[in-house]
């Protein structure tokens, strides 16, 4: 479904993603793991079409990133990206206007579940509320590839459970999820496959269960081992 070969993105004084090669299958929940600045966000942005690679190949369903891929891929960035005039309702309308797979009823439902007032201005929302809104708007799309960049950041514990449940509830064998996070323990139980990135380079990857059995430790412990200073 998603394939990259020697994917590289370099900036003035840094190589954000360094010859990354991956193959992602449908029907799986992938965890993209690594500390801040390891290249997770840059990778996701390249898949989302927000950043163009420096070199290497990136294909979605066999096609380069473009209009087709953008219509099937939903990306939730870490930052707040809405226009300042927008309320929750406006954000929903925007997504409805541009994405045929957006479901307004599901959106209203999700906002309700997370106790968000759709009429409130986004600019006046707390960071926690903003985080919930982003999830709501992203998961209300019936996308084929869903990439959530730090979905649990800034969210209180109770809402985290709701979000994990929503992710689980959205899952179908045709969909693929990529969750990037450094809150690994929250995700330990729901991930199928773990991808560890360090300084833009792929360090380890494999099915979560197998990694646990081979190494005799949890993904959390593996994470600590890989990224220990």
């Amino acid at each position: 479904m998603l394939e990259c070969k020697n994917l590289t993105k370099s900036y003035l004084n840094k190589i954000a993603v360094d010859r990354l090669s991956l193959q992602l299958e449908p029907g799986r929940i992938y965890a993209l793991l690594g500390p801040n600045g390891s290249g997770k966000t840059t990778f996701m942005k390249m898949v989302a079409g927000l950043v163009k690679p420096t070199t290497g190949e990136l294909l979605y369903d066999g096609q380069p990133i473009g209009i087709y891929s953008k219509s099937r891929i939903a990306y939730m960035p870490t930052e707040s990206y809405f226009y300042t005039y927008m309320t929750g309702v406006d954000a929903g309308k925007y997504y409805h206007d541009f994405f045929p797979d957006f479901n307004p009823d599901r959106y209203r439902q999700l906002l309700d579940t997370m106790n968000l007032d759709p009429t409130q201005k986004i600019a006046k929302m707390s960071s926690g509320m903003m985080a919930k809104l982003k999830i709501a708007v992203t998961l209300s799309r019936d996308a084929q590839l869903i990439m959530l960049d730090e979905p649990l950041n800034g969210i209180d514990i109770i809402a985290r459970d709701k979000i994990v449940s929503t992710i689980i509830g959205s899952f179908t064998p045709e969909k693929t999820f990529i969750l990037s996070s450094h809150l690994v323990d929250e995700l330990e139980k729901i991930i199928d496959h773990a991808i560890f990135i360090k300084d833009g380079v792929l360090v380890m990857e494999g099915a979560a269960e197998e990694l646990r059995m081979e190494r005799g430790k949890s993904i959390v412990d593996l994470y600590k081992e890989i990224y220990a200073e």
Binding site: G49, L50, I67, K70, S80, Y81, F82, Y83, F98, F99
Partner: peptide, 13 residues
């Protein structure tokens, strides 16, 4: 700014 995401994520060339 980040609001460029809104536009560039949409399925438009």
């Amino acid at each position: 700014s980040k609001s460029s995401y809104l536009i560039f994520m949409t399925p438009n060339s």
